[in-house]
Design a protein around this nucleic acid. Structure first.
Lengths: 195, 195
DNA sequence: AAAAAGAGTTGATTAATATCAAGCGGAGTT
DNA sequence: AACTCCGCTTGATATTAATCAACTCTTTTT
């Protein structure tokens, strides 16, 4: 079957095994779609209609402030979910943009289909609960970093926890993700290398 | 029955109505406890064993850095839950302290009892899912603020979204919650008043 | 009642990071 | 192949917020 990575993901996060029939139902509920580099999956002002599972490629979710500066809130690569869950849940227009950083392939689930699946496939609510917990923990960690650490410490923490990101995304995006300017990140790295 | 505020809370967040029997079971599963001002509910290094529902009073959750500076991650007042969920879920020692900011009364649930309730009272998983979602959205908002806004903008946002906190907690705690020093917050407020 | 501790303000100085500006080199486009 | 754009670096300067220090006013403790 195609998209085995989604199956593996759900099995892993739900702590159970999907039957072939269940997995087939999940695949029926979603739509595969490709995005070219720089193509939008969500634009600020729209309500987020889809939750996307990344099969391959990479995405970023970011806001743009009054001065036109982008602030990246989330980075996602294959085997991650992408969406503005606030907008999707509350049905409010999103403040964020989501676009492809590389040519990518995703599976799109509308919120309704996703709710159906959560109601009918036992593994799904387990996976969702687990996912929400992980999301919460991750954003609490980043909040802690952002409140109590210096730019350099935040960079080193990212280097430890998500080295993949550093290889996968250009440095200016990493800078934005860390909440510093590209110049500052460049200097931080120079300093870190000297040690 | 006592502790009606918990019942109201669960009804509201689950979108259903607890029966008297269900609510009685919930009350049996927890332990009421009082905390004096400054008393710890959790100390850094311990595994967080309880999830607490605040009946009255106020708590803060914070880390202490190498220089001894406190960084407040969460503030909670009556009708909020308090716990380090990361520690409680992962069973890892917490990096955070939780202590009472005022004399307070809470209901303590051990993680096991909470899991029992989630498994046996239908309203509970609904409430938990809703709570996780809200927590995630709230921490994403704060993360966004902390990455893209200046200290002054963050203060004004708090003034809009959680004016209660400003009345309830001393200014140095608000400063820590916003990620600035008390001196800086004092100057920000002075400036904001002049307008 | 006196003393001590805590909370907030204000001023002077320092440190961290942003901003502005210039230049380099590679990737993609025509 | 030439050209343009983009990502990255480096330097000089400006801005923001932290730090250090002093002082006032409450609140708490003795």
């Amino acid at each position: 079957m195609p998209y085995e990575s989604l199956r593996t993901y759900i099995n892993q996060y739900s702590g159970s095994e999907l039957t072939d029939e269940e997995f087939a139902r999940i695949l029926e509920a979603c739509t595969p779609r490709k995005y070219r580099k720089k193509q939008y999956l969500l634009q600020a002002g729209e309500v987020c209609k889809y939750v996307a599972f990344v099969i391959s490629g990479a995405f970023r979710m970011y806001s743009v402030d009054d001065k036109g500066v982008e602030h990246i809130l989330h980075l996602s690569i294959e085997n991650w979910w992408v969406a503005d869950r606030e907008s999707a849940l509350m049905l409010t227009p999103s403040r964020y943009n989501i676009d492809a950083v590389e040519d990518s392939e995703v599976l799109l689930f509308t919120s309704e289909k996703m709710q159906d699946l959560v109601a009918t496939v036992p593994a799904m609510p387990k996976m969702m609960a687990r996912l929400d917990q992980r999301n919460f923990i991750a954003s609490q960690k980043r909040l802690h970093a952002s409140i109590s650490l210096t730019a350099e410490e935040r960079y080193l923490e990212l280097l430890n926890n998500n080295p993949v990101f550093l290889q996968r995304f250009p440095q200016n995006m990493i800078a934005s993700y860390l909440g510093v300017t590209p110049e500052t990140l460049s200097r931080i790295r120079k300093k870190a290398l000297q040690k």
